[in-house]
C-alpha cells in the first residue's frame, strides 16, 4: 500500500508542478463561475449575476428552470468544456508521463524495487487520471453549489460528471499509454490518442446522425423530401427507410469495438434527475399535453438519447480499454530496460 500511495503522491506532485494544470484549473473555475452567474428564475433569465436580464412574460416554472439550468450543464459545458477542451489540455499535460517514466535512469530505479511491474504500470496509469479528476471535481462542486443556491435544490446527480469524464479520459489516455510504452515517444502517443479519439467520435457522430435519419425523424412524424429539401409534419409516425436503417446497422457494428467517448459523456443526461425524471425525458419538461406532434418529436428524441443501453456504452468501452491496457501492460512487463 505504501508503494501505491507513493506513486499517487508523486503523480500529484507532478501535476501541481505543471503550469498547464493551473491554467486549465483556472479556466475551469472561470467557466464554472460564469455558469454560476446565470440565473433561471420565475421572471426570466439573467447572466453575469444579473447584469443582463431577459424577462419571460409567462414566467418559468421551477421544474423547467431546473431543466434549463441542468441541460445547459449537460449539453454545453460537459461535452464542450469538460469533455473536449479540458480533456485535450489533460492529454497534452500527461501524455509525457509514461515516456519520461520509461527513460533510462528513471525506470531502472522504479523496476528495481519490490513492487510488481503490473502494479507499477496500473498505479502509474490510474494516478495519471488525477489531472482530469481534480479539474472535473472542482468544476462540479461549483456547479452543484450554484444550482443548489439558485434552485434551492441540491442535485447530487451533477457529480456523475466526475466518474464519467474520468472514464472518457481514461479511454483516450489508454491509447496514449500503449503507444508510449511501445515507442517511448510523447509526440506519437499524443497524435495516436487524438487519432483514435477522432475516429471513434466520427463513428459515434455518424451512427447518431444515421439513427436520427433512419428512425428519429420518421418516428417524430416528419416526412423529408431530400430532393427538394421540403419537410412535412404529421401526427402519425412515418415509414422507416430500410436503406438508411441498413447503413445505420453497418456503422453501428463498426463502432462496437471503439471507445464510446461521445456516448459516455451524454450518459450524464440519464444520471441527473429532476423530480424522478431524467434529462432525456424532454417531453416531461417541455411538451404541451394536447400537442400530439410535439409529444411525438420529444418521444422520438428520447428514444434517440436512450438508443444505447448504459451497459453497451460502458461495457464496449471497457472492453476496448481492457484490450489496450493489457497490451500496454504486457509490453511494459516483458521489456528489458
Amino acid at each position: 500500500m505504501t508503494q501505491i500511495l507513493t506513486i499517487f503522491w508523486d503523480s500529484y506532485r507532478l501535476l501541481t508542478a505543471k503550469r498547464l494544470f493551473w491554467v486549465a484549473l483556472g479556466l475551469s473555475i472561470l467557466i464554472a463561475l460564469l455558469y454560476a452567474s446565470v440565473n433561471v428564475g420565475e421572471n426570466g433569465i439573467s447572466v453575469l449575476f444579473g447584469a443582463y436580464e431577459w424577462a419571460s412574460p409567462g414566467g418559468i416554472p421551477a421544474f423547467l428552470a431546473q431543466y434549463i439550468y441542468l441541460t445547459t450543464f449537460t449539453n454545453v459545458l460537459v461535452p464542450f468544456w469538460l469533455g473536449l477542451f479540458a480533456i485535450v489540455l489533460a492529454l497534452i499535460s500527461v501524455c509525457s508521463v509514461f515516456p519520461n517514466f520509461l527513460e533510462s535512469g528513471s525506470i531502472d530505479v522504479a523496476v528495481s524495487k519490490p513492487i510488481s511491474r503490473v502494479t507499477l504500470f496500473f498505479t502509474k496509469y490510474l494516478s495519471s487520471l488525477l489531472f482530469v479528476g481534480v479539474q472535473v471535481l472542482v468544476f462540479c462542486v461549483i456547479v452543484f453549489i450554484a444550482f443548489g443556491l439558485r434552485m434551492e435544490s441540491w442535485n447530487f446527480g451533477i457529480f456523475w460528471a466526475v466518474p464519467l469524464i474520468i472514464f472518457v479520459f481514461s479511454l483516450i489516455y489508454s491509447v496514449a499509454v500503449l503507444i508510449a510504452v511501445w515507442t517511448k515517444s510523447t509526440l506519437l502517443s499524443l497524435l495516436m490518442a487524438f487519432l483514435v479519439w477522432g475516429v471513434s467520435w466520427g463513428f459515434q457522430a455518424a451512427e447518431s446522425f444515421l439513427y436520427k435519419m433512419a428512425y428519429t425523424i420518421p418516428s417524430a412524424g416528419l416526412k423529408m423530401d431530400y430532393s427538394t429539401g421540403e419537410s412535412e409534419q404529421s401526427d402519425t409516425p412515418q415509414e422507416l427507410d430500410p436503406g438508411l436503417a441498413q447503413i445505420h446497422r453497418v456503422v453501428k457494428l463498426v463502432a462496437v469495438p471503439l471507445p464510446k467517448t461521445r456516448d459516455a459523456t451524454y450518459l450524464l443526461k440519464t444520471k441527473i434527475k429532476i423530480n424522478g425524471k431524467d434529462l432525456t425525458q424532454k417531453g416531461a419538461f417541455l411538451a404541451e399535453e394536447d400537442d400530439t406532434s410535439m409529444q411525438n418529436i420529444h418521444k422520438a428524441e428520447e428514444e434517440l438519447a436512450n438508443r444505447h443501453s448504459e451497459s453497451y456504452v460502458i461495457g464496449s468501452s471497457l472492453a476496448f480499454e481492457a484490450v489496450i491496457l493489457s497490451l500496454a501492460c504486457f509490453i511494459f512487463v516483458k521489456r528489458d530496460y
Binding site: Q3, S106, V109, I115
Partner: peptide, 27 residues
C-alpha cells in the same frame, strides 16, 4: 541501486526524492 545516468523527477525536492524512492521500496 544507483543507476548510471540516474534521473529523478525534476519537480521533486532532494528530500522528496529520497522519500519517493523509500516509498517505492516499501519503507
Amino acid at each position: 541501486y544507483l543507476p548510471e545516468h540516474a534521473r529523478f523527477p525534476e519537480y521533486l525536492k532532494g528530500r522528496e526524492v529520497l522519500r519517493y524512492v523509500a516509498g517505492l521500496g516499501g519503507v
